[in-house]
Computed example of a mutant assay.
Amino acid sequence: VLATLNTMGNNELQAQESHYLYSVFTTGVFHFHDDVEILLDEQTKLVHFRSQSRAGYSDLGVNRKRYEQFKAIYNK
Rank of each mutant, 00 (worst) to 15 (best):
49 F>G: 00
65 K>S: 07
19 H>L: 13
3 A>F: 02
23 S>Y: 02
43 Q>K: 12
61 G>R: 13
58 S>P: 02
54 R>G: 13
21 L>P: 02
17 E>I: 11
42 E>F: 15
15 A>C: 04
54 R>H: 14
39 L>Y: 14
13 L>H: 02
37 E>F: 00
18 S>I: 13
37 E>P: 00
25 F>Q: 06
12 E>M: 03
56 G>T: 10
15 A>V: 11
20 Y>F: 15
56 G>A: 12
22 Y>N: 14
5 L>N: 01
55 A>I: 15
65 K>P: 00
38 I>K: 06
52 Q>E: 15
65 K>F: 02
6 N>E: 10
3 A>T: 04
60 L>I: 11
30 F>K: 04
18 S>L: 13
8 M>N: 01
25 F>K: 06
17 E>N: 14
17 E>V: 11
1 V>T: 01
40 L>E: 10
58 S>M: 10
43 Q>L: 08
56 G>M: 09
44 T>K: 08
14 Q>D: 04
25 F>G: 03
43 Q>W: 04
34 D>F: 06
22 Y>D: 13
25 F>P: 01
29 V>D: 04
1 V>L: 00
38 I>A: 06
31 H>I: 00
24 V>L: 09
48 H>A: 15
38 I>S: 06
61 G>E: 11
21 L>K: 03
13 L>Q: 03
40 L>A: 09
17 E>L: 15
29 V>P: 00
8 M>R: 01
59 D>L: 15
25 F>N: 07
65 K>N: 07
25 F>Y: 13
58 S>I: 12
55 A>N: 12
54 R>F: 08
11 N>L: 10
31 H>R: 14
33 H>G: 05
39 L>P: 01
23 S>W: 01
53 S>C: 08
32 F>I: 10
2 L>W: 05
4 T>M: 02
62 V>I: 12
15 A>I: 09
37 E>M: 02
22 Y>T: 12
55 A>L: 15
55 A>E: 12
42 E>S: 15
46 L>G: 06
32 F>V: 08
11 N>S: 12
28 G>R: 12
32 F>K: 04
39 L>C: 09
7 T>L: 02
42 E>H: 15
9 G>C: 00
50 R>N: 13
40 L>K: 09
65 K>M: 06
41 D>L: 13
52 Q>N: 13
63 N>E: 05
46 L>T: 14
26 T>A: 03
43 Q>I: 08
26 T>F: 00
12 E>K: 07
17 E>K: 15
42 E>Y: 14
39 L>R: 11
36 V>F: 00
6 N>M: 07
33 H>F: 04
9 G>S: 03
39 L>G: 08
64 R>Y: 02
22 Y>V: 14
21 L>Q: 06
61 G>Q: 12
13 L>G: 02
1 V>R: 00
24 V>R: 03
47 V>Q: 01
14 Q>H: 05
59 D>Q: 15
61 G>T: 13
52 Q>F: 11
47 V>P: 00
54 R>I: 10
47 V>M: 08
2 L>P: 00
